[in-house]
């Protein structure tokens, strides 16, 4: 079993009248990628700041590489690289000057940081314009340079806040490949804060859905699907409307969890498991259903995400009502 490099236990951080982080508990293994999904203000950025020792937790425990971030912030930050939500580059400085400055603060020797900067500038296609002030760069170029800055000192733990924001599809694909590659080759761990559910599913081993500072669910995408929305959707296209006995059979079938009709000739069935599909299709045909096509539609991470957020919203409304009574 691989060791945990991050351990968070009952973490609370109060900011103003409400907690920005409210009882988070999770861990991150060496080489693992964890996505934190949540709307703006959910507490993702605050969590990253707490893990890097920028804020002192109100209560709870955080351990990053066995260190306590708020007390040993410099040591923790020397092992982490953070891509902030905005590129946060010095626009009057050139790309080389930016990388040299951050490399120096990360304790990289002069020769090594020069060599590494050139390597990253070439990788991100910025080499030809590396001596120009960053203010003249496009949004995508700035994002690539910010990524280069994050990777500069080869940190074993990366925090990436919306890494492909502002990038064109080609550059976004390049960044995805880079993240997959650094994990594979260097065993770097990644915490990815994103709104992009497809990106999270593609790049991360586990996903944590967060809102109002609380972790609503945590697990692999498959685990979350099973946990939050067990089963899978089956779209059935019909040649003719279903006879009454077929409807009765569907409603009484324990494998069918939900029936959604969309018109006379199409229906969607939420079935408990994949193995139930052949049995169900045979039964429908036996009872006189004329089936044109049957298409299984797996639950997407997006479905899971919105189901969790909706559940949380309803809980919030209930809490407010309870408080008012």
């Amino acid at each position: 079993m691989q060791q945990n490099i991050v351990e968070v236990m009952d973490l609370i951080y109060d900011y103003g009248e409400r907690p920005a982080v409210n009882g988070l508990t999770f861990s991150l293994r060496k080489g693992e990628a964890l996505a934190l999904l949540g709307p703006n203000g959910a507490g993702k950025t605050t969590t990253v700041r707490l893990l890097n020792g920028l804020f002192a937790p109100t209560s709870g425990k955080i351990s990053v590489f066995g260190l306590e971030p708020f007390r040993q912030g410099d040591d923790v930050r020397s092992k982490t690289g953070v891509l902030t939500e905005t590129p946060a580059l010095y626009e009057r400085l050139t790309a080389r000057q930016n990388l040299d400055f951050f490399g120096c603060l990360a304790d990289m020797p002069s020769v090594e940081r020069g060599k590494r900067a050139e390597e990253l500038l070439a990788f991100f296609g910025l080499h030809d314009r590396a001596s120009e002030p960053v203010g003249a760069y496009s949004k995508g170029m700035k994002q690539r340079l910010a990524l280069a800055r994050t990777l500069l000192h080869r940190p074993p733990l990366l925090f990436l806040d919306e890494p492909t924001s502002g990038l064109d599809p080609e550059a976004a694909r390049q960044v995805h490949a880079l993240i997959e590659n650094i994990r594979k080759e260097n065993g770097q761990s990644v915490v990815l804060c994103t709104h992009n559910l497809a990106e999270a599913e593609r790049l991360c081993d586990r996903v944590g859905v967060i809102n109002r500072g609380r972790l609503l669910a945590l697990g692999t995408p498959d685990e979350l699907r099973k946990q939050v929305m067990p089963g899978l959707w089956l779209q059935v296209d019909l040649w003719s409307p279903l006879p009454q006995q077929v409807w009765r059979s569907l409603e009484g079938n324990p494998s069918v969890l939900e029936i959604a009709r969309s018109g006379e000739l199409t229906l969607r069935l939420l079935v408990s498991e994949q193995a139930a599909i052949p049995v169900l299709v045979t039964e429908l045909a036996r009872l006189g259903g004329q089936l044109l096509a049957v298409r299984p539609q797996p639950i997407s991470l997006e479905d899971v995400y919105f189901a969790l957020q909706e559940k949380d919203r309803q809980e919030n409304v209930a809490e407010v009502h309870h408080a008012l009574e």
Binding site: L54, G73, V82, T84, T86, L105, D107, R149
Partner: peptide, 14 residues
């Protein structure tokens, strides 16, 4: 104002 402070604060400088 230029939002560069956050990147600076994430560095290992005390």
């Amino acid at each position: 104002e230029r939002k560069t402070i956050e990147a600076l604060l994430y560095t290992p400088a005390s």
